[in-house]
Write a protein that binds this DNA or RNA. Sequence first.
DNA 1: ATATGTGCAAATGGTTTGCAAATGG
DNA 2: CCATTTGCAAACCATTTGCACATAT
Lengths: 144, 144
Amino acid sequence: MTGQERQRRLHRIRDRVRRRGRRWTVAKAALVEELLGASGHLSARELHEAMTAQHPQMDHSTVYRALHILAEDGIVHSLGGPGHTLFGLADEPHHHVVCGVCGSVAEIPAGDLGDLVAAAESRTGYSFSAQSLTLAGRCVACAG
Amino acid sequence: MTGQERQRRLHRIRDRVRRRGRRWTVAKAALVEELLGASGHLSARELHEAMTAQHPQMDHSTVYRALHILAEDGIVHSLGGPGHTLFGLADEPHHHVVCGVCGSVAEIPAGDLGDLVAAAESRTGYSFSAQSLTLAGRCVACAG
DNA sequence: ATATGTGCAAATGGTTTGCAAATGG
DNA sequence: CCATTTGCAAACCATTTGCACATAT
């Protein structure tokens, strides 16, 4: 991802946040930037640690609250099991595969599983937004 | 489900536990019976409450430990997010659909999603036992 | 007999909350 | 300005753990 693309994504996200009537704060900006750079999913703890590099005074509660707001607005999603919730950006459509043992996450581009999603929706009445489908299984390392 | 079927499932489960070198204890028996009766998924707290009816001295830590062992042996699975993990029997093949908002769970009989599972496995290298595929979305009530 | 499981009580650790001060629009 | 957000400190609550005793096989 080029620096330009990254700027574009960042601005698009910022505008979405503002359009929702939220404020574009230091915490949100820093979290989104961190997630843009990470190209993966991070835990609240990892994010907080990353924050303290640039913003040593930022509290973990701030991280949690900002993440909660971003999740409510569909900017990020949270996934994973008890004690190891992970957060990732939601602006590029994809699905998740979560290892129930170690919590690692892989991504599947949206579209690849279209049939699956449709089948699951029609059978259960549950709705899966394009970005929010999450499968739980075991990764290669934990499959033993 | 008739009482006979229930007995059969119970015995099959007990034998699986023993074959794994585990002991068939009061806690495990009571938990499995409760789950057999519940025909759904229960939280650790709900299970512990149910236990105290017949076994007032049984501690929550015992419930957790027994559930953990049963999960390791594939007798039950745990699913759901932080703070509202749910447990259900795994002896009848099915998949789960979990609402990320309220934590409610619906089931999909195994087989219905066979293609889906295969696609997800080949793409990610993750493995999904027939019983352990879990999808996360939003239930009808929470879909707003 | 002996590894496995249990009860109890205390710790752990991720997540949430109340409140006064700071900040974004 | 004024609602939203933040820092701080403390509370919360599900889950885990250490240890001595009990139980299943």
